[in-house]
Design a protein around this nucleic acid. Structure first.
Length: 428
RNA sequence: GGUGGCGUGUCCGAGUGGCCUAAGGAGCACGCCUCGAAAGCGUGUGAGGGUUUACGCCCUCCGCGGGUUCAAAUCCCGCCGCCACCGCCA
């Protein structure tokens, strides 16, 4: 949610920033309607408040007269009573339309975020080199040879878009998750294991709803009268956990992380780049999150990106970091950096982490505030989130980058104790 | 799932239709006192919104949403949550 006051005071700046993501004509139409509703809203509030004040005074006078023993004043005519009810319902209507329109507006991209789509993304850093591999086998083939992932039985269980880790594959996946958990703890984040079914308020707060309502799985009203949905990322849960709270300023920045599976509907149809575990309806991800003072946000973003890059580097994977353009970043974010690993089979880089700064956009939607030092005023915190990391993308990258000519795969050193072997070998 | 009890401010807690514009206490902040502190005394102490150059003024909020009434923390209905017992259950 954007700041209504900013729209009133500097509509031009808002329109300019939004034009990086949306058609300028559309932006103007949306802002026109929002400003009209805002004015209507304030006019109605002024009217309603005055009427309420009058009535309160009347009721008090009535009570005082009754106490004094004098005859009660006559009651206000029916017509006047109706009027307040009518005004209030008008206000409800206007406010709900305003909230809807405001809720649909995306965040303002940061100054250094350029307009455009994927083509406008810019690589800002790269780490390591592309491994020289003579005869590249792709991760699907390697998993099959090594018995790491059973796609057939996964589909048998969950339908298309699901898989099942097996044997050393399950151990590798679990080792990755555990290692990531330990790394995040060491980096100062507190571990959360949240519910996987969330109420709609959490989806709205994170900015997933209303825009991506259809991209997540909703429980039917029969089995879940309150319409819970399966979380598409732990970000939704971590943010939602602090909804409507005023955080103690001394505890900021508040660093949290969570492991959850992520459930996403994902458009049907397969993509040659996205076979195997690269895209599915359920995948594992460890998510880091920070609630900060506005002035801490820059440093926090930098720190989170560096932390995530360090994780990928410690696994020994060649990767790069890209600053996303306004159109490619998610709508709730001011600025997003993707950390992408090299996939030898496709000759492309694939996102393993998206680290983003939301400014106060999510905090506004979720009403998460802090009290200004020495002041009474509450302000919205800034929120930042990042994957650390998505193992379903890490897993194939490890297989492909560390494959050996004989079809075996070297296990990253940091995981060897946890996997229980240095090398994944066919026939085991 | 059933039955019963409960839900008040930062916390405890009073309040069962109108001077509730929420008692009292604790905590916190500031001041007085003190060499300093404690104690004591005094003052202040929530959130959201409207309006105002400003000081301020006003509205809403007693779990949430409706209703009754000139008037609701208080009465009625629905929901949510917590506690207890019963039932069911990996």
């Amino acid at each position: 949610m954007l700041d209504m006051e900013l729209i009133r005071k500097d509509r031009e700046a808002v329109a300019t920033a939004l034009a990086k993501r949306l058609d300028p004509a559309e932006v103007n139409r949306a802002l026109d309607e929002i400003q009209r509703l805002d004015q209507e809203r304030r006019a109605l509030i002024t009217e309603i408040d005055a009427e309420r004040q009058r009535r309160k005074a009347e009721a008090r006078a009535y009570a005082a007269a009754k106490r004094a023993g004098s005859a009660p004043e006559s009651v206000a005519p029916e017509a006047e009573r109706k009027q307040l009810v009518e005004l209030e319902s008008q206000l409800d209507e206007v406010q709900s339309r305003l909230r809807d329109r405001m809720g649909e507006l995306p965040n303002l991209p940061a100054d250094d975020v350029v307009p455009g789509g994927k083509e406008a993304n810019r690589v800002v850093r790269a780490f390591g080199e592309r491994p020289a591999i003579e005869k590249v086998r792709d991760h699907v083939e390697l998993s099959r040879m090594l018995g790491l992932v059973d796609h057939e039985r996964g589909v048998k269980l969950g339908g298309s878009g699901f898989w099942m880790y097996t044997g050393l594959g399950a151990r590798l996946e679990w080792a990755l998750l555990n290692w990531l958990i330990d790394q995040n703890i060491a980096a100062g984040y507190d571990f959360l294991l949240p519910p996987h079914l969330l109420l709609d308020t959490a989806g709205f707060a994170a900015g997933q709803f209303p825009k991506f309502y259809d991209d997540v799985y909703h429980l039917d009203r029969e089995s879940a009268p309150r319409g819970q949905f399966l979380l598409p990322t732990a970000e939704t849960a971590i943010l939602g956990a602090y909804q409507d709270e005023i955080l103690d300023t001394a505890t900021l920045p508040l660093r949290r992380f969570a492991y959850t599976p992520c459930y996403r509907r994902e458009a049907a149809g397969s993509h040659s780049d996205e076979r195997g575990t690269v895209r599915g309806h359920q995948f594992n991800k460890v998510e880091i999150f920070q609630f900060t003072l506005p002035e801490q946000a820059d440093a926090a973003l930098e720190q989170m990106v560096t932390h995530v890059e360090g994780l990928v580097a410690r696994l020994g994977l060649h990767h790069q970091t890209s600053l996303l353009s306004a159109g490619d970043a998610s709508a709730s974010m001011k600025k997003t950096l993707d950390i992408e690993v090299w996939m030898p089979s496709t000759g492309k880089y694939k996102e393993v982490s998206s680290v983003s700064w939301a400014g106060d956009y999510q905090a506004r939607r979720a009403a998460i505030r802090y009290r200004e030092a020495g002041g009474k005023q509450t302000r919205f915190v800034h929120t930042l989130n990042g994957s650390a990391l998505a193992t379903s993308r890490l897993f194939p990258a490890i297989l492909e980058q560390f494959q050996q000519p004989d079809g075996s795969v070297l296990v990253p050193e940091v995981l060897r104790d946890r996997v229980g072997t240095d090398r994944l070998t066919p026939g085991r």
